[in-house]
Deep mutational scan, measured.
Amino acid sequence: MSIQHFRVALIPFFAAFCLPVFAHPETLVKVKDAEDQLGARVGYIELDLNSGKILESFRPEERFPMMSTFKVLLCGAVLSRVDAGQEQLGRRIHYSQNDLVEYSPVTEKHLTDGMTVRELCSAAITMSDNTAANLLLTTIGGPKELTAFLHNMGDHVTRLDRWEPELNEAIPNDERDTTMPAAMATTLRKLLTGELLTLASRQQLIDWMEADKVAGPLLRSALPAGWFIADKSGAGERGSRGIIAALGPDGKPSRIVVIYTTGSQATMDERNRQIAEIGASLIKHW
C-alpha cells in the first residue's frame, strides 16, 4: 500500500482519535458579512469528516447552483462504474471539434489522439474542462443518470439537468442544476469515506481534487503551510461562485467545507476574496 493510499485508508482512524471539535460562531459572522459585502445569498456548511456531524452552517438547506462543483460527483459516478466493471479508466475516447464547448483548455489539445477516461476526469476536476465533463456525462448516460446515481446514494436534493455550459445559467428560483450545502457536503463525505467506492477509487477521487489547479484564489489562499486540501470550485452566471473541499491540518483532511453564493453584482475577484476570507476565519478558529 502506498503512503497516499495509507493516508486515505486511515482518515477515519486518525479522526477518531482527534480531540473533540467545537464550532466557532466567528466564522458564521464572516459568512454573514460576506453576504453584506456581496449583496447576495451565501450558503455555508462545515462537517466533521469522521462523524458527519454538522459543526457550523448557514442557509444549509437553500438551493444554490452547483456550477462546476458537480464534476466531482460526476467522476465519482464514473469511478463507481469502474468498480462495477462497467468502465475502464484506460479506455480512450475520441471526439471532434464539434464536441468542444466553451472553456476546454485540455480537451482542445487532444482532438487528434483523444483522451482516456482517467485523463478526462483529471481534466474535468483539476482544470474544470467543460468538454471533458460533457464527454464523461455521455459515458454514464447524461445528466439524468448522474441525478439517479445521487438518488441511489441517498441524495434526493442534488440534481443535474443540463450539460456544460448551460448548467451554469443560475436563474433565480430555478431548481435545475442545483444542490443544497448540506446535501453536497453529505454526498461528498460519502464519496470520500464511505463504502460506495473502493479504496482505490476513493484515493483516485481525492487525488484529482488535491491536484486542483484553478481554485488557488479561494480556500487555498488562506491555508497555512502543512495543511491538506482537496477541492473543486465552480463559477456561473449572475454572480455565482462555489467551492467544495476536504481539508485539515497535519497533512490530512478532517472536515468537509461547502460554500456557495449566487445573485451578486460583485466582480469575480471580490467573490473570490470573500470566500478566501471565510476560509481564513475557519482556519483561525479551527
Results as ranks from 00 to 15, higher is better:
G114Y: 05
D207Y: 06
T69I: 13
R41H: 08
K213W: 08
N272M: 00
V106P: 07
D269V: 08
E237C: 10
E26F: 03
G85T: 15
P181H: 11
R189A: 11
V42A: 12
Q265F: 14
M153S: 09
I256A: 10
E26N: 15
W227T: 14
D99R: 07
V72W: 09
G142C: 02
E56Q: 15
G114A: 10
V42H: 13
V157F: 11
A266N: 14
D36L: 05
E87F: 11
V72P: 09
S80C: 08
H24A: 07
G234N: 04
G236T: 06
V214N: 07
D99Q: 11
D174I: 03
H24Y: 05
S96Q: 00
E56H: 12
N130R: 12
M268P: 02
M180I: 02
Q203R: 09
S80H: 11
G154H: 06
I206W: 11
L137I: 15
F228S: 05
T69N: 05
Q203K: 10
A225L: 05
T147G: 11
M115W: 15
K53A: 07
I244M: 14
L89Y: 06
T193V: 08
G234K: 00
M180Q: 11
I125N: 00
G90I: 10
A132K: 01
T116Q: 09
N130C: 13
V214S: 15
A170H: 07
H94R: 11
E61Q: 06
T178P: 05
G263I: 15
W163D: 13
T267F: 13
K252E: 09
S57M: 13
Q37R: 12
D33S: 02
H156N: 09
R118H: 08
T262I: 15
K109Y: 15
L79G: 12
D99K: 04
L146A: 14
V101D: 13
L160S: 07
A123F: 15
L219P: 06
I206D: 13
L73F: 10
G114F: 14
E210F: 12
P25T: 06
E145K: 02
S80P: 06
P60T: 09
K30H: 15
P25K: 08
A280M: 15
D129Y: 00
A84D: 14
E61G: 04
K232D: 14
L282Y: 01
L197H: 02
E175N: 10
R118K: 00
W286D: 06
D113G: 00
S96R: 00
I229S: 03
P60E: 04
M66V: 01
L74I: 14
I259A: 10
E26Y: 15
N134I: 06
R63L: 11
D231R: 10
R92D: 01
Y103M: 13
P165N: 01
T138S: 09
A276H: 11
W208A: 09
V214D: 14
D48K: 14
S128W: 11
V31I: 11
K71E: 01
A133F: 02
T267A: 12
G141S: 03
E164I: 01
A123Q: 15
T139S: 05
F58N: 00
T267W: 09
L55E: 14
H24Q: 07
Q265H: 09
N272R: 00
P172K: 12
V29F: 04
V101Y: 05
I54T: 06
A40F: 15
L55N: 07
V78A: 08
T193A: 08
T107L: 15
E26G: 15
S233D: 02
V29D: 08
L55P: 11
A84G: 08
S128L: 10
K32V: 04
P217G: 12
V82S: 11
G52W: 06
A170T: 07
T193W: 08
A246K: 01
E166T: 11
L135K: 06
R162W: 07
G154M: 06
V78P: 03
N134R: 07
Y44T: 04
A235E: 05
A170G: 09
